[in-house]
Design a protein around this nucleic acid. Structure first.
Length: 455
RNA sequence: GGCGACGUGGCCAAGUGGUUAAGGCGGGGGACUGCAAAUCCCCUAUCAGCGGUUCGAAUCCGCUCGUCGCCUCCA
């Protein structure tokens, strides 16, 4: 398959370096509830992983949590709890939401605070090799030491300095130098180190954890497009300075999520909670929303868009789950599978793949009407949908409050008798009232069916 | 100021040199139905504007207008 590489700014034919695809994805800093943008990123890399596995590759997936930083300390102080408590709460919330979203769990979720010795060791090595220097208990990376600094974000060191809007710390040799280790201020959580008590800087953790859990050279390093600079640029610098080997063969970045046309981010205060988004529209609808546009494009979160996805999911689910008799000529769904693969092979072309799913759903309905045996096509539809992580569950029993199911069925039974007696006014009233309560009733030749409808 | 992305039907969104310009949602008409719903059939775009390259451009180049992002914490 072809996969776009931020390093070369081109889609390149992807082959892992070894038997297993080594995938490292930058996770989040759990200082607040995760939002829909985090969910988007999770879905994108989940689909990448699922597709690689579908194509017969095994994948080792690591995603970190940056569980110590200024914002975490700030929030914890404000809330009057220790940082571990605060972090634990948001990590748990995020992992729970990932499960709801049907995101496959990573093989490891390392956390900075549990990797401090490995980080210290790495910083030590960088100091020894002359890539870092200490000042008053801080340690900085020396960006001028390696000539290729800036090759991921495609910018020259000089231009960064020229455009810098931040007051440069006078103690740094170069304004672009960044902290590997930060000396502890009074009252801050701190770990011992050869340079005194402190904590790791923002970028070093990923380098250390990637090295420890996946090795010196990753196949794919992923994250949001905003991480390209400075985070990923700095990771490359540190890692390659330390190991002398290429850090990642592919750099894959997902586009931003916008809310009503503006970047969704906590600092702008325009976020939609991950949980809220999933609960309001459903996991499948959210995933479909993400996958209907290309992963590198910005994605605009609007109520209208999400609602339309919810309808689309119903369409796919109805085709995938309809109980059909196995009679007639078998319908050949292989061309759909080929087109699905063709789309996905082209830099994870999920929009095209989704289109194939809808066409296959359509073909299932058509084939049924034409008296064909479409059960194999339904199986293909479910299989390909699952590559995109779409559950297409027969939601009826699952989602409605379990307690209500017997009553719904009782009402439908009564209604059926009324219809047999041609008491349509009352029968329609039952259907109408159930609809208002979020239960859609469909009469078919085989009897009445119902399903919950989100509002 | 530097770097980058984008502008396709009512909405969302593919396509990046030659196909009838995917697909979804919505809308209109029809079939089915007691009526609906679901489903099926039909209809619903010339690609921001201008100029250029080419036998041929939504697709390449230039300019204009507009939107967004990165350069600072951020998936």
């Amino acid at each position: 398959m072809k996969l776009y590489n931020t390093l070369s700014r081109r889609a390149e034919e992807f082959h892992p370096g070894g038997d297993t695809v080594l995938l490292y994805v930058c996770g989040l800093t759990p200082y607040d509830e995760p939002h829909a943008g985090h969910a988007m990123s999770a879905v994108v890399f989940d689909v990448l992983r699922r597709y690689l596995e579908f194509r017969g590759l095994s994948v080792r997936h690591v995603q970190n949590f940056t569980d110590i930083d200024d914002r975490i300390i700030q929030r914890a102080n404000r809330a009057g709890v220790d940082t571990g408590t605060l972090v634990g709460q948001y990590v748990e919330s995020y992992l729970r939401d990932l499960r709801t979203l049907n995101v496959l769990p990573a093989h490891h979720y390392p956390r900075v605070t549990e990797e401090v010795p490995a980080i210290v060791e790495m910083i030590q090595g960088l100091l020894e090799r002359g890539y870092a220097y200490g000042v008053d208990g801080d340690v900085y990376y020396r960006v001028t030491r390696k000539p290729d600094y800036g090759r991921l974000s495609h910018r020259a060191l000089e231009s960064m300095v020229a455009g810098a809007r931040v007051d440069s710390d006078e103690r740094k040799e170069h304004p672009g130098d960044f902290a590997l280790w930060k000396a502890a201020k009074p009252g801050e959580p701190a770990w011992p180190s050869p340079w005194g008590p402190g904590r790791p800087g923002w970028h070093i953790e990923c380098s250390a954890m990637a090295l420890r859990y996946l090795g010196a050279t990753l196949d794919i390093h992923g994250g949001g497009a905003d991480l390209i600079f400075p985070h990923h640029e700095n990771e490359i610098a540190q890692s390659e300075a330390y190991t002398g080997k290429p850090f990642a063969r592919w750099w894959v970045h997902n586009g931003w999520m916008l809310l009503n046309g503006e970047k969704m981010s906590k600092s702008l205060g325009n976020t939609v909670g991950m949980r809220e988004a999933i609960e309001r529209y459903g996991a499948d609808a959210f995933r479909l929303f993400v996958l209907t546009s290309h992963y590198r494009s910005p994605l605009n979160f609007t109520d209208e868009a999400l609602r339309s996805m919810r309808r689309g999911v119903q369409r796919l689910a109805s085709a995938a789950n309809a109980e059909l008799p196995g009679r007639g000529e078998p319908f050949d769904s292989e061309p759909f599978r080929r087109r699905f693969i063709e789309a996905m092979d082209d830099d994870l072309g999920t929009p095209g793949a989704v289109a194939v799913l809808f066409e296959l759903a359509h073909a299932v309905h058509r084939g049924r009407d034409a008296g064909q045996d479409v059960r194999a096509a339904q199986a293909t539809l479910r299989e390909l949908a699952s590559v995109l992580g779409l559950a297409l569950a027969a939601e009826a029993e699952e989602e409605a409050a379990a307690d209500a199911v017997p009553f719904i069925e009782l009402l439908l039974e009564v209604r059926q008798e009324l219809r047999a007696l041609r008491q349509f006014t009352v029968a329609d009233k039952i259907r109408g009232r159930l609809s208002e309560l979020g239960i859609a009733v469909e009469d078919t030749p085989e009897g009445s069916r119902w399903r919950p409808v989100r509002e």
